[in-house]
């Protein structure tokens, strides 16, 4: 089996999920200049709601086909996460819109801890396994294995990212979002309802996060109340790597981070003579974060400096 190709495939799968989550960070940062640290928890809630919806729909009186169950459960997860993100913004961020930068950062972290604990109370401390809703098939491709789930994850991620770019660049909603990202004040003086745009940004980001949550738990066949924390930090790293505030940057950063992590994990054992194993893969994400922050704080595609007048 070709290790390199295998790690590239794993990296692309992981990277697509990072990219979806990173988009949520970058959109919110682009408009509010705020790091929404509760975003990782939205991903977790997406996964958990999906699992609950699957067990309710699957165990209900109606006999539904598996694909119907999946579609309804995903829609439920998106819906719940959107509502959740809407209220996160209203409760934790909007009252602090004009406060110093540090204040919403603290409420973001507080929100993250709060959501984790609420999730623990609702769904318990134990790992929850992903139901077998479909037959996992494995294909061998040039010496590397790829499953239908992995292909699906990459495919759906690309489709979603393409549609997001289309919405941002081709619709009036997207135009209003870009205008607000440049200057909320000027946008409002040109008739844009900035509060609506901000709510919408959170809702769209949460929709992407919900899908990412479903995908990541499908990939690892597992979900846990704390899964959003590290995932969120890594997606944030991906957003910084790509250039925070830049949508294409978040996608590129996500994929790149997934690849770095996977390939790094694949070879770290050989490189250190077995001293460090593949469970050190998390190290790479944060190594990347440090390197980017030191050498290119604007990220790969970010040309806009973070401060705005």
């Amino acid at each position: 089996m070709d290790i390199f190709l295998q790690q590239v495939i794993n990296g692309l799968v992981l990277g697509s999920v990072y990219a979806l989550v990173a988009l949520g960070y970058t959109m919110v940062y682009g408009i509010l200049g705020l790091i929404n640290f509760a975003h990782g928890e939205v991903v977790m809630v997406g996964a958990m709601v999906f699992l609950t919806a699957v067990s309710v729909l699957g165990g209900g009186p109606l006999v539904l086909s598996n694909s119907t169950i999946i579609v309804f459960a995903v829609l439920t997860a998106i819906f719940v996460c959107s509502i959740l993100a809407f209220f996160i913004e209203r409760i934790a961020y909007r009252p602090l819109r004009n406060a110093p930068r540090l204040a919403p950062l603290i409420t973001a972290i507080g929100m993250s801890i709060l959501l984790q604990n609420i999730a623990m109370m609702i769904w318990g401390r134990q790992y929850r396994t992903f139901p077998e809703l479909f037959q996992i098939e494995s294909y061998t491709f040039a010496g590397a294995n790829v499953t239908n789930v992995q292909l699906f994850i990459v495919g759906i991620s690309i489709a979603i990212m393409a549609s997001l770019l289309a919405v941002i660049h081709l619709t009036k909603v997207g135009r209003a979002m870009r205008a607000t990202a440049e200057s909320p004040q000027i946008a409002s003086l040109m008739g844009v309802n900035v509060n609506t745009v901000i709510s919408l940004t959170f809702i769209i980001g949460a929709g992407l996060a919900a899908i990412a949550g479903v995908l990541v738990s499908a990939n690892y066949s597992i979900a846990h109340y704390s899964m959003g924390f590290i995932l969120g930090l890594k997606a944030f790293t991906a957003a910084v790597l790509g250039g925070i505030g830049n949508l294409t940057g978040a996608m590129v950063g996500g994929i790149l981070l997934g690849l770095i992590e996977s390939i790094g994990a694949g070879y770290i054992g050989d490189l250190t003579g077995g001293f460090m194993g593949s469970h050190y893969q998390d190290v790479f994400a944060f190594l990347v974060l440090i390197i980017v922050l030191v050498f290119r704080p604007t990220g790969i595609m970010g040309e806009r400096v973070a401060d705005r007048s």
């Binding site: 919405v167 619709t171 009036k172 909603v173 135009r175 209003a176 870009r178 205008a179 440049e182 200057s183 000027i186 946008a187 040109m190 008739g191 844009v192 609506t196 919408l200 806009r304």
Partner: peptide, 27 residues
């Protein structure tokens, strides 16, 4: 102006206030 947007897009943002299609419809 919205510097990174095109001239046409800048003017299009101004048009929004006289439009009727809702958020969901636009998306």
């Amino acid at each position: 102006l919205f510097g990174t947007m095109t001239g046409l897009e800048n003017v299009m943002v101004g048009c929004h206030v006289r439009t009727n299609i809702g958020v969901v419809g636009a998306i």
